[in-house]
């Protein structure tokens, strides 16, 4: 299996994450069961939902449950096929093949999580197609290799339907290969429990943060592209737990990341002052 005499430089190798302790995840529906069944049936899974509502955390949790290593790739618009599959490097005077994260995950029988898949270039998404149907294989053209995925390999992608650019829609031919799970902001009591747990704040502070989150979500389409996700609430909670004044923490962790436009920023500040 070793393609060259020289090993690839360590620092560039794909990290396979083995989760030993349970990542905290609060289920909000039947996602645990559906995901487990998809894994059992060797079907790829698509997680849909706004940013910061627990998709990444859920995958980590499932990787722990299923006792499989996890490889995560945050997709961006310059992500090439080689970035996913692998490339030759020159080490000293030798050329060394280096598996990309997707290839590494396939070889290891890991869960490969492609986060925000629509961000990747169109031609890049094509390489996952053979992995998502009955072939379950990855052709590595540059090496003339055809890797059949072991049973434990699983492909998971995430996708935020809130994207408004028509040029960034996911094509039906891609979407329809996946079992899909809808994610949304948890209902208030659940979300408060998550924020309290993750942010290390008391229940009352968590409740107010969730209240604030709910208010910002009403501004979707009226000043904001998207309201505050759970992640932002957790960030604010963490600042508060470190002793920061709640209003300042919320401004820094919630209002500023959400909005640039003056009126909306001011309105968010007003909402923060109103809740705290």
């Amino acid at each position: 299996m070793n393609p060259a005499r020289n090993p690839a430089p360590r620092a560039l190798a794909t990290p396979l994450v083995h989760l030993d302790s349970e990542p905290y995840y609060h289920a909000t529906g039947d996602e645990l069961a559906v995901f487990a069944a998809a894994a059992q049936s060797r079907l790829p899974v698509m997680l849909k939902g706004p940013t910061g509502c627990g998709k990444t955390r859920f995958v980590e949790h499932m990787a722990w449950r299923l006792k499989r290593p996890l490889v995560t790739v945050a997709c961006h618009d310059d992500l090439t096929t080689a970035d996913l599959v692998g490339r030759y490097l020159i080490v000293g005077d030798e050329t060394v093949w280096m598996d990309g994260p997707l290839t590494a995950a396939v070889r290891a029988g890991a869960i490969c999580y492609l986060d925000e898949i629509v961000e990747a270039r169109k031609d890049t998404t094509v390489v996952i197609h053979p992995l998502t149907d009955s072939r379950r294989a990855l052709p590595v053209e540059k090496r003339g290799e055809y890797i059949e995925a072991p049973p434990d390999f699983m492909l998971v992608i995430s996708y935020n339907p809130g994207y408004q650019s028509v040029l960034k829609e996911m094509k039906p031919s891609t979407r329809q290969r996946f079992v899909a799970l809808d994610f949304d902001y948890p209902e208030a009591a659940t979300e408060a429990r998550i924020v309290a747990h993750e942010g290390g704040v008391d229940d009352e502070t968590a409740r107010r943060l969730v209240k604030l989150g709910g208010l910002t979500r009403k501004l979707k389409g009226a000043g904001l592209d998207e309201g505050a996700g759970t992640r932002l609430l957790v960030h604010a909670a963490q600042l508060i737990a470190n002793g920061m004044n709640p209003a300042i923490a919320c401004t820094a962790a919630i209002a500023r990341p959400l909005a640039d436009e003056t009126d909306t920023r001011d309105a968010l500040d007003d909402l923060i002052r109103a809740v705290f």
């Binding site: 910002t216 009226a222 000043g223 003056t262 909306t264 309105a267 909402l271």
Partner: peptide
């Protein structure tokens, strides 16, 4: 006005 109308909208 802009700031207030957003504020009210969120309530």
């Amino acid at each position: 006005e802009g700031r207030l109308s957003r504020f009210l909208h969120a309530l």
